[in-house]
C-alpha cells in the first residue's frame, strides 16, 4: 500500500512545510531561548537551567497550574457527560432532532473572547438581578470570589464545548449496528443494560477522541479566561496559559515565560499521550 514515491512527498510537502515553520521551528527557538536571559530584544548570555529552577519556587505559576488542573478535571468530566447525554437525546427518533443538533452546536460557533464578555454580563448583571428579584443571595456577587470565578469558567466552557463533543459522540453512536441492539432486546435486556453493555463499550473510541480534545483545550484555555475573569479576583482564577503570557509580555521576562511554556508543553503532552495510550488499550473492536 505504501508507495512513498515522489508524488507522496510532493503532496505532503505543503503541510510539512507549514507545520515546520509555525510549530517546530518556533518550538526549537523557544526552547533555546529558555536557557538564556532573553528579554525580547536581546539575549546576552546562557544561564543554563536557572529559569527552570526558579520556576519550581514560583508560587504564582504553581497556583495557576493547580487551578488549571482542578478546572480541567471538572470540565473534562462535565463535558463528556453533557456531550454524551446530548448525543443520546438527539439520536433518539425525535422530530426536532435536527433542530436540536443545530442549537446545541451553536455556542461553539461563537468566538471565545465574545463568549467571555457575554457570560460576564450574564454572571454579573443578569444573575444579580435574578438573585435580587427572587431573594437568592447565592446569585449575587458572581465572579467576585474565587469559587464563583471557577464555576463561571466551568459553566462557560461546558456550555461552549458540549455541542462539539456531542457531534463526535453522534458519529460513533450512529455507527453502532442495529442488529446488536435488536439482539439484546430479544434477549430481554432493558434500556439501561443495553446502554451499559452495548452502547457504552462501542463508543469507547469516541471517549479517546473527546477526552483528548477536552483535556488539551481545557488545559490550554486562554481567551475565555481573559475575557471572563482576567485572572481576577487577585489572580486566583488565572490559568497557566494566561500566567505565561503575563510573565512574558507584561512583566517582560521573555526567557522566563518561555521556560514556563516549555514546562507547560511537556505537562500537556505527557498527560494527553498517557490518556490516549490507556484509552486505546480499553477500546473494543467489533
Amino acid at each position: 500500500m505504501r508507495n512513498r514515491d515522489l508524488s507522496f512527498w510532493l503532496f505532503l510537502s505543503p503541510v510539512l512545510l507549514a507545520l515546520a515553520l509555525v510549530v517546530i521551528v518556533p518550538l526549537l527557538y523557544g526552547t533555546f531561548y529558555s536557557f538564556t536571559d532573553w528579554d525580547g530584544l536581546r539575549a546576552t548570555r546562557f544561564i543554563g537551567f536557572e529559569n527552570y529552577s526558579r520556576l519550581i519556587h514560583d508560587t504564582a505559576f504553581l497556583n495557576s497550574l493547580w487551578f488549571t488542573i482542578k478546572f480541567s478535571v471538572v470540565t473534562v468530566i462535565l463535558l463528556n457527560f453533557f456531550g454524551l447525554s446530548l448525543a443520546l437525546i438527539v439520536t433518539r427518533k425525535l422530530k426536532s432532532a435536527n433542530l436540536l443538533r443545530t442549537v446545541f452546536f451553536m455556542p461553539n460557533l461563537i468566538g471565545g473572547l465574545i463568549l467571555g464578555f457575554i457570560w460576564q454580563f450574564i454572571f454579573i448583571s443578569v444573575f444579580s438581578d435574578i438573585g435580587e428579584a427572587l431573594g437568592i443571595a447565592g446569585l449575587q456577587g458572581w465572579l467576585s470570589t474565587t469559587t464563583t470565578g471557577f464555576w463561571g469558567l466551568v459553566i462557560l466552557t461546558v456550555w461552549q464545548m458540549a455541542g462539539y463533543i456531542m457531534i463526535i459522540y453522534i458519529a460513533y453512536l450512529q455507527n453502532i449496528p442495529n442488529e446488536l441492539i435488536e439482539a439484546a432486546k430479544i434477549d430481554g435486556a432493558n434500556s439501561f443494560q443495553r446502554f451499559k453493555n452495548i452502547t457504552f463499550p462501542l463508543v469507547a473510541p469516541a471517549f479517546t477522541v473527546s477526552m483528548f480534545l477536552t483535556l488539551s483545550t481545557s488545559f490550554k484555555m486562554y481567551d475565555q479566561n481573559l475575557s471572563l475573569t482576567n485572572g481576577g479576583p487577585f489572580e486566583s482564577t488565572q490559568m497557566v496559559a494566561m500566567e505565561i503570557v503575563k510573565t512574558a509580555f507584561s512583566s517582560n521576562e521573555m526567557a522566563y515565560g518561555q521556560a514556563k511554556a516549555v514546562v507547560f508543553f511537556l505537562i500537556v503532552a505527557i498527560i494527553s499521550l498517557t490518556q490516549v495510550y490507556y484509552n486505546k488499550k480499553r477500546e473494543v473492536d467489533m
Binding site: 467576585s144 470570589t145 474565587t146 481576577g232 479576583p233 487577585f234 489572580e235 503575563k246 507584561s250 512583566s251 517582560n252
Partner: peptide, 17 residues
C-alpha cells in the same frame, strides 16, 4: 515592571476579598 497592577493591586484585592 507591572508591580503596581500585579503585585500591589492583586494583594489589595486579596485584602478586599
Amino acid at each position: 515592571t507591572m508591580w503596581g497592577q500585579d503585585a500591589l493591586g492583586s494583594n489589595i484585592q486579596r485584602y478586599l476579598g
